[in-house]
Design a protein around this nucleic acid. Structure first.
Lengths: 124, 124
DNA sequence: TTTATATTTAACTTTTTAGTTAATTAACCG
DNA sequence: CGGTTAATTAACTAAAAAGTTAAATATAAA
């Protein structure tokens, strides 16, 4: 699929590419620098391909300086992806709320008004 | 890759699967209900496969009731993915800051103290 | 017990992805 | 110029993804 959100999520669905973004979050880097941590696991052309995926998703931009390509993080697609996820925030927050309620229910702290013995053996 | 974050992002990298999650955010639904909007485009086994991807990523859980499988959204992996993205928030927020500064610089509103003609021709 | 409904599994095809090695491009450097 | 460095492209392979149709499973209902 080639809608933008799909391109972004797809680019993020690989630990090598996420690690590359991570490195770029600490500053620009050229291809050899980005490749270094991965050259035990894969060839340089493989790195080039990963960078292409990131580039097509708009997550990085490359500028050339002599024979070096400097890569720079572009966070706009990450914002877009996060914005999409926001619509689900209410779900995990309500889960956390329920967890909190549960944790309170099993903690016999002050203000545990009434309902003593609120916990019975629950395992079959 | 089979780390959890990769499974999640991969599951989200498809508009059909995102639409399914979207429907589930409005309440539980069984397979046929989920499939309905897509049966013009794909077969039922294709839908089953998409649901399997979502299930393996932990984004949905299925419960069986007679011959129906009811699917339910599980937001935990979405939270995990959002938490990962949070580390980049600073980047898009600083971009927005720069945009804001720029927009202010080109708007001749009150308090535009000094630095008139703050913009010169910048192209070579 | 047959039939209908809901869903999955099997077997297969096509396309895409992720990697490889070898060759190519492009710039710099002595 | 000739060699070195940085990176990409080409051509290929293997494996995974996404779809298909047909068959199987499991439950309900008549």
């Amino acid at each position: 699929m080639n809608d933008h959100l799909s391109l972004t999520f797809n680019a993020l669905a690989d630990p090598t590419r996420r690690a590359m973004l991570n490195q770029l979050s600490r500053g620009e880097a050229n291809v050899s620098e980005l490749a270094k941590p991965f050259l035990k696991d894969m060839s340089l052309p493989a790195v080039t391909k990963h960078l292409k995926v990131l580039e097509k998703a708009g997550l990085i931009t490359k500028t050339r300086e002599a024979q070096w390509r400097s890569c720079k993080l572009n966070s706009a697609p990450l914002k877009e992806a996060t914005d999409w996820m926001e619509q689900y925030r209410i779900f995990w927050e309500e889960s956390l709320d329920r967890l909190e309620v549960y944790l309170k229910s099993i903690t016999n702290n002050k203000k545990s008004k009434g309902k003593k013995n609120g916990i019975k053996k629950q395992r079959k």
